[in-house]
Measured scan of single mutants.
Amino acid sequence: QNEKLANELKSLLDELNVNELATGSLNTYYKRTIKISGQKAMYALKSKDFKKMSEAKYQLQKIYNEIDEA
């Protein structure tokens, strides 16, 4: 289960640069939040902690959705 979550989180991290570029014309909230979420996700992957990875995955998905809707 950890392996599956780690792969999903890696996949979301692969999209980080594209989504970060998409924040160029948006409010600074999005820029700041996506950077923080990305850092948390990288830390969670290194720690291999299921709870941290779950939270990081949720945060990344949430900010990606917010950027898409903005």
Rank of each mutant, 00 (worst) to 15 (best):
G24S: 13
Y58Q: 10
I67L: 05
Q1M: 12
N2P: 06
N65I: 08
L5Y: 02
Y64A: 05
T23I: 07
E15R: 14
L26R: 04
K48N: 12
D49E: 05
L45G: 01
I63K: 01
S11L: 13
E3N: 07
I34W: 03
S37P: 01
A41F: 02
K4Q: 12
E66P: 01
A6V: 10
K57W: 07
Y58M: 11
M42N: 05
M53H: 00
L45A: 02
A44T: 00
Y64E: 01
A22N: 08
K35F: 11
K51R: 09
S47H: 05
T23A: 15
T33H: 10
K48R: 14
L13K: 00
K10T: 05
L21I: 10
A56S: 04
A56E: 01
L12N: 00
Y30T: 03
S11Y: 07
K40A: 09
A56T: 02
A44L: 02
E3S: 07
D14F: 08
V18D: 09
D49S: 07
Y64L: 14
A70F: 07
L21S: 06
Y43A: 15
E3C: 11
N65W: 12
N27L: 05
I34D: 00
Q61D: 03
L12V: 02
L60E: 00
K57D: 00
E55S: 06
Y58N: 09
S37D: 03
A6F: 14
K57R: 07
E55G: 03
K62F: 04
E69L: 13
N7F: 12
A44F: 01
E20D: 07
K31P: 03
N19W: 15
M42T: 05
A41Q: 00
E15D: 09
L5N: 00
Y58S: 09
Q1T: 09
A41I: 02
L13S: 00
E15P: 02
D49G: 02
K40V: 07
S47E: 06
D68Q: 15
N19K: 15
E55N: 06
E55W: 10
T33N: 08
G24M: 14
M53N: 02
A41R: 00
E8K: 04
K35W: 12
Q61C: 09
I67N: 02
K51L: 10
L12Y: 02
D49C: 05
A41G: 03
K35D: 04
K40G: 03
L5Q: 02
D49F: 02
S11K: 14
E66I: 07
Y30L: 09
Y30S: 03
K31A: 09
K46M: 13
N27D: 12
S54Q: 13
A44R: 00
A41H: 01
T23M: 06
K57Q: 04
L16Q: 02
D14A: 12
V18Q: 12
A6H: 06
T23W: 10
Q61G: 03
N65F: 08
N65Q: 12
I63D: 01
V18S: 11
Y58C: 10
K10I: 09
G24E: 15
A70I: 07
T33M: 15
A41E: 01
A70V: 07
A56K: 01
Q61T: 07
V18I: 11
N65A: 13
K52P: 01
T33S: 11
K52A: 11
Q39L: 14
S11R: 14
Q39N: 06
K35N: 06
K62W: 06
A6W: 15
M42H: 08
K57G: 02
T28W: 14
I34C: 04
N17V: 13
L26W: 05
A41N: 01
Y43Q: 15
L5T: 02
E55P: 01
L26V: 03
Q39T: 09
N19L: 15
L12C: 04
E20M: 15
S54K: 12
L12M: 06
K57C: 08
I36W: 12
S47D: 04
K10V: 05
L21K: 10
E55R: 09
A70E: 04
L26P: 03
Q61S: 05
Y43V: 14
K40H: 06
Y43W: 13
I67Q: 02
I36D: 06
M53Y: 03
Q39R: 13
Y64F: 11
Q59Y: 13
D49I: 04
Y64H: 04
V18M: 12
N2S: 11
T33P: 01
A44I: 02
N2H: 13
A41W: 03
L45C: 03
L12K: 00
A70P: 03
K35V: 08
A70L: 09
E3Y: 07
L5F: 02
N2E: 11
L9W: 00
A41V: 03
E66K: 06
Q39Y: 09
L45P: 01
E15G: 07
M53S: 01
Q59G: 06
K35I: 10
L13G: 00
I67M: 04
Y43T: 12
G24Y: 11
E55Y: 08
K52E: 12
A22H: 07
K52Q: 10
K31Q: 12
A22P: 05
F50Q: 06
K46Y: 08
L45V: 03
N65T: 10
E69R: 14
S11W: 11
K35Y: 11
D14N: 09
I63M: 03
K40L: 13
Y29M: 04
Q39C: 13
G38I: 15
I34M: 05
Y43D: 15
Y58L: 11
R32T: 10
L21Y: 07
A44K: 02
K48F: 08
S25K: 12
K40E: 06
Q1Y: 10
D14C: 12
K57L: 15
M42I: 12
M53C: 03
K51I: 10
E8W: 05
V18H: 11
K62L: 07
L16P: 01
A56Y: 02
T28L: 11
L26I: 04
K4D: 09
E55L: 09
K52I: 08
E20F: 15
F50K: 04
G38K: 14
Q1W: 10
F50Y: 11
G24L: 14
K57N: 03
M42Q: 09
N65Y: 10
E55T: 06
K46A: 13
E15T: 07
S37Q: 14
K10N: 04
K35P: 01
T33I: 14
I34K: 01
K4W: 08
G38Y: 14
Q59S: 07
A22M: 14
E20C: 14
R32G: 03
Y64D: 00
S25G: 10
V18C: 13
G38S: 12
M53D: 00
N19T: 07
L16E: 00
G38C: 14
D14G: 08
D49Y: 03
K40R: 12
Q39H: 06
S11A: 14
N17E: 13
M53K: 01
T28G: 13
E69V: 11
A6K: 05
Y43S: 13
Q39P: 01
D49W: 02
E8T: 04
D68R: 15
A56I: 03
E3A: 08
V18Y: 13
K62E: 05
L13I: 07
L5P: 00
Q61H: 04
Y43P: 01
M42V: 09
L12I: 03
K62N: 04
T33Y: 12
L13P: 00
I34A: 02
F50E: 06
A56F: 02
N7Q: 13
K35H: 07
K62G: 03
T23N: 06
I36C: 10
N17T: 13
E55H: 07
D68M: 15
M42G: 04
R32Y: 13
